[in-house]
């Protein structure tokens, strides 16, 4: 099963992951798994909102796992290893003032996902891939 969900601005932040959560609940996926998926996806969504002013989420659900790819055409990440460091953030001040951009986004995605990968090209955009298994 496949979905493409828009990732928009701050008004829409969290909508895509919230929709995925509803879908997983309708499938009867265990609550813990739903939560991990939703948290990881929410963080990825938020990154796309903050750094790229939006993008899209491609979701694939099978009976064993869910794959979420959050794709944006934003500025890209020059040093992924650095970006993965807890507390490292390039979010502008006004975003931090809203309580976001604490530099925990990517590490938090990694913590909640069973598989996690990130591809990025400066000037082109970023693609975050999250896999969560249902029965592990």
């Amino acid at each position: 099963m496949n979905y493409v969900l828009p990732v928009g601005d701050f008004l829409m932040a969290g909508e895509a992951s919230s929709n995925v959560k509803k879908i997983l609940n309708q499938l009867g996926i265990p609550p813990r798994i739903v939560k991990r998926t939703a948290v990881a996806m929410y963080e990825a969504e938020l990154n796309a909102v903050i750094h790229a002013y939006g993008g899209r989420a491609e979701v694939e659900i099978t009976k064993d796992f869910i794959v979420v790819e959050v794709i944006d055409d934003g500025p890209g990440i020059p040093d992924i290893e650095l970006a993965m460091t807890e507390g490292y953030s390039t979010a502008p001040d006004e975003i931090r003032e809203m309580g976001f951009g604490a530099g925990m986004g990517l590490p938090n995605i990694k913590r909640n996902a069973d598989e996690f990968s990130i591809e990025s090209e400066v000037g082109k955009g970023t693609r975050v891939r999250i896999v969560v298994y249902f029965n592990r």
């Binding site: 099963m1 609940n25 309708q26 499938l27 009867g28 659900i61």
Partner: peptide
């Protein structure tokens, strides 16, 4: 206790099928 009232079917494969129809 958790009451999973939103679940479409007890069986995941069937739930997925129903979700597909639903969409």
């Amino acid at each position: 206790q958790h009451k999973p009232v939103m679940k479409l079917d007890e069986d995941l494969a069937k739930a997925m099928q129903k979700l597909g129809q639903l969409e």
